[in-house]
Amino acid sequence: MPVLLVAPAVLVVVALRIVPLVMGANYSLTGDGADNGAFVGLANYRTLLDDPVFRTALRNVGLLLVALPVAVSVPGILATFLFLRVPGHRLYRSVYFFPVVLSPVIIGAIFNVVLSFDGPANQLLVRLGMQPVDWLGDGSIAMLTVIAVHIWATFGMALVIFMAGFATVDQSLLDAARVDGANLPQTVWHVIIPELSQTIQFVFVTTMIGMLTGMFGLLYIMTAGGPGGATYLPELYIWVQQGQMNRPALASAASMVLFVFMLVVGFAQLRIIKRATKEV
């Protein structure tokens, strides 16, 4: 009976996730264009290694991982303030979640205009006496801009998860800390963070999955990989090779590299997922 309960879900996931993955692994060993269908061994993978754009794409995944702690701590800090009842906290809690309900493609399109060189963001900078910044046209900062917009678009989700975690913090511990004369940072460090460890892990996992699998929409609209290929991510590379360049086999090879990469990163995190799904 339990098998029957899980069977439909397993069937869907296997048929539409796992089987395509295996088919893709197979395509990645065949050729494109004139070599369509012919076995070419690891030629596609060699092409990938030689392609500076793909290398940049992988490097940018590394950048995402570096940005992960920021994406987790920003909502964490904000949630702490909300928990401590900053004036207007009810309103903020609602407003901050608001970008989460918008489609990434729409957020990207809006920020395209807001961050354009003669857009409102730069107008504000100039009014404050600063130099305008080419947010999306300067290869050294464009990726950071897109990551920042991604964090803007998703921090509300992490925020409410933190808020729920706070709701379970044992009030007597906080009272005890106050009696002991602990200041705010001490309280956060010694009481709140240990109490929230489960929540923090959960936010880490969901934020990581969001960053590694959910940035395509923004990227595609905001930079399309430019300038000079500086903002490619593997998903975009796969998309471009498959569509514009009409090289589905090479795209499949890139897919496999991305998947293995995700699996390695995922292994580290699976431990945490497992703990989250297990009862504490």
Partner: peptide
């Protein structure tokens, strides 16, 4: 197996997915 599918970006399986 199901949770590992969380880590598969859609683009990874895009080509075969539409074939299926």
């Amino acid at each position: 197996l199901i949770l590992s599918a969380l880590l598969i970006p859609f683009q990874v399986i895009m080509v075969p997915f539409f074939r299926i």
